[in-house]
Amino acid sequence: MMNVPEKIEKHRFDPAPKDHSDLEKIEKPQLSFGKDAWLRVRKNKAAIVSAVLLLLIVVMAIIGPSLSKFDPYAQNVAHGNLPPRVPVLEDIGIFDGSQKIGGVETNKYEELGIEEYYWFGTDSLGRDLFSRVWVGTRVSLYIALLAAVIDMVIGVVYGLISGFKGGRVDNVMQRILEVISGIPNLIVVILMLLILKPGIMSITIALVITGWIGMARVVRGQVLKLRNQEYILASRTLGASNFRLLFKHLLPNLSGVIIINTMFTIPSAIFFEAFLSFIGIGLQAPEASLGTLIEDGYKTFQFLPHLMVIPCIVICIILIACNLMGDGLRDAFDPKMRD
């Protein structure tokens, strides 16, 4: 157990130089809440790839329609039902505008002598699918973002008040919430759409009516948990105003759950919009959204699959990416997963 040390020079037993400033230094590197979360998200490759994909789709939703020289609403019946044709790619035998009709390989572009390139093909009315897909994406994203933001505002305010006031107020607010959440949201959404005139605003409103409940619940739960924590009590005993407590102490700690929840409401709103359009009570023609495009494409799905497949791919990418990012953020913000 003991190893006798060899001869050691005397001077080394002098007292060590004292450095008191160093004493209370925290040895571990300090990380702010956001920085810590970012470190975790960055490690999650799926979340990063998703973020890049989403960014790409958002950019395309903004500039996509103007990349194509065709107007998304302009009809040209002579150019109806064309398959995709892309320059360069057509030289290697894909997306060259050929298609099989009744087992016979044909190329409508050549038959009709069409010089234009419709990158994603055209629909039955000869509208350019490329610009329509991106206009549709724009509309879908717009509805989803709007719904998510309104949900967030209502939900956070409701949850904060309910959790922070507590007592009678909380009780009444909770009973209201319980009753509303008992009504299946699908039913509310459908009923609302039957009253309101179909359109972007009415779909958003229909989605918001039940959408905020989840956020309100999560925020209230979190506030209740935080409210009784020592640092809030400490701040309260030091005479902090409610306002200060809310904005300085509670909100920053709520930001995690709020972000995560919003990250999950966006895909759910996109799904619902598409779903409603698919069963025929969403946006009406000639308005384009991913849902209406899929619905439209489904009618001729067996003969012209590209009309449905392309908007389906876009919506799937958006939904998968949103979910993966939501998962990544949840793992990053969830203190339980720390270690």
């Binding site: 779903f275 067996q302 389906c312 799937c316 998968i320 993966l324």
Partner: peptide
């Protein structure tokens, strides 16, 4: 699981129908 949660049922159903049925 992420795919199952993300892909809308009508997209999946239509795909199934097209590939396996048609």
């Amino acid at each position: 699981a992420v795919l199952g949660k993300s892909i809308p049922s009508f997209v999946f159903a239509a795909l199934l129908q097209y590939v396996i049925g048609v």
